[in-house]
Design a protein around this nucleic acid. Sequence first.
DNA 1: TTGAAAGCGCTACCAT
DNA 2: ATGGTAGCGCTTTCAA
Lengths: 353, 353
Amino acid sequence: MTTTPRRARAPRQSDVARLAGVSQSAVSRVIGGDTDAARIPEATVRRIQEAIKELGYVPNPTARKLRTGRNRLLGVHTFEAVFPRAREDFYFEFLLGIEERAEEIDHDLVLFTSTGGADGRRRVYRDGVNRLNVADGAVLLGVAADRAELARLEADGYPFVHIGRREVPGTRITCVVPDYESAAAAIVDRLADLGHTRVGYLSAGIDEESYADRRRGYESAVARRGLRDVSPAGPPGPGGVPDAAWLDRVADGALTAVVADAEWLAHPFAEALAARGLAVPRDVSVAVLEGVAADAPVRWDCLEIPRREVGRVAIDTLVGLLDEPGRDVTDVLVPCVVVEGETVAGVSEGSAG
Amino acid sequence: MTTTPRRARAPRQSDVARLAGVSQSAVSRVIGGDTDAARIPEATVRRIQEAIKELGYVPNPTARKLRTGRNRLLGVHTFEAVFPRAREDFYFEFLLGIEERAEEIDHDLVLFTSTGGADGRRRVYRDGVNRLNVADGAVLLGVAADRAELARLEADGYPFVHIGRREVPGTRITCVVPDYESAAAAIVDRLADLGHTRVGYLSAGIDEESYADRRRGYESAVARRGLRDVSPAGPPGPGGVPDAAWLDRVADGALTAVVADAEWLAHPFAEALAARGLAVPRDVSVAVLEGVAADAPVRWDCLEIPRREVGRVAIDTLVGLLDEPGRDVTDVLVPCVVVEGETVAGVSEGSAG
DNA sequence: TTGAAAGCGCTACCAT
DNA sequence: ATGGTAGCGCTTTCAA
């Protein structure tokens, strides 16, 4: 048995060319499948392919990338968590969609993992080096995206898309986002269809784009349907309990339906109602504007956030950006599904007014 | 406000050089920190750094890699599973160690994710292309490592280490492995120290290197300490229940201690003993040659597999390979800790003999 | 139909 | 101390 020397130099196109008795460019063309443009005779192609096989030649992706700017590598950068850990549920479905779609379109994925700061937050730029640059472009995700880094990436002309809306003043970044606005509006429409005319919005008070989207959808639908908005004035107290004065008004029949932008607001609200002798959905309907685990204690009417689809769309959007660098896409919306649960009902006679 | 043209060409060293009024190689030297070798005056260095800042220059890792063969990118390839899922995941602790160490030595990690086959198994080679090639080297893991791929990688001279021993005939692959052999021997030594002279080995019958390691450690220690080996003849029946005839001999006092190479063998064994009126560890001591969850129903005497440390060592070994391509490392052993539980005791008087 | 050669951005050698 | 330049492996234009 011949002992292969360890760490032998990898064969290059020129080696293949020499063995096949052709020029290096011929080899390149055969590998690139360019046999149409410059018709290479069957026989030559075969000779080259044999040489490739004999030498065990594999193209060098680095050289390819340097030359063409592409290497069919897409980066994925998450701004927090080491390997998907605490937020594993949050990321997981997105990642599945990303992977699934990348593979369908024959791209490889590169997951950038290293943190970079002692704070555990992940950075794109380390010592001024854009680590993502080895990939053709990247999908970024993370609730705590660093806006300065996004802005810099954008200024550097690095192609990327962000999952979740992120607005950075003076910058147009391409985002792929669940369409919370339409979903919130659809829920209000449903309430209106069921006869509700006085509704309220329970806000967690989170200052983030996706929550603004929900609120906007709610407000536009309330206006469009001519409903009366009877939302509490301020943010909830600790534990998500709403303002007591407002609760008393609700107990007096000030509204018949409430929309909460987080599940953890709905629970204390329902309990506060119960304490006042009201029941959900008999007296007040409640809908939640986010996804709720299937095994949750209460089957809230809620949203289903199409995480997987968002991941897939992110890949397609990114590749679109790569193929057409001129394009200026900003938001790509992915529809949410409204899930009917057990907490929304028609207006009961007693509370109609 | 000036509108930056989207997707502007990234600045190169030559741009910096022009702006600073120096040659491109001077720029390269400043960036490479080579100011010692070829003393560049303070003033020049500063001018160059200003130009770098003004232009927002960042080095191109692809070009770097093409030139030097290194880009401080280490690949991680897992042969199965999509994204590392839960904490309990087989991979998780290894990955933590890998990430931790890579970061300490200022390398970035690239997680190769895409499957490649319809079977869901991950491949290194796809259409003959070694996808790992963008990284300087890689750590591979996976219980179902494809030996053919390992052999090919090795033949191609690609630098990699494998976590867990994998033997491929005719090939010397570098493995980082928990030292099961020593650990198994240490456990037997402890049993011998406690007065046990007749012992048995419960094998799950898994045909894998790490199980062979355990058995070897057991057998060498048994021989060295002059113990009598009273192991069951064949593999366990369904459910891990050992051969009944052998159990009867155990009930007759044929041995006083047993070592199991999997936790799921220890349970049915203990139950079978109980059915025959024997107790663990009163009559028979039992040790498990693998890690056991801290919250397991029985606190077995067992091993603690240093997964995190294995990950760290894998990185160091890999980088060692990169720095000294000539070296021919094969197995790197990482010590296991023997965890004392409640299932091993000294030989009781009644069963001594 | 095929080959020669330029050049992607960088590092390092060899001049000055 | 600094600059010119070769060349990493590849794709692609231009000539032959």
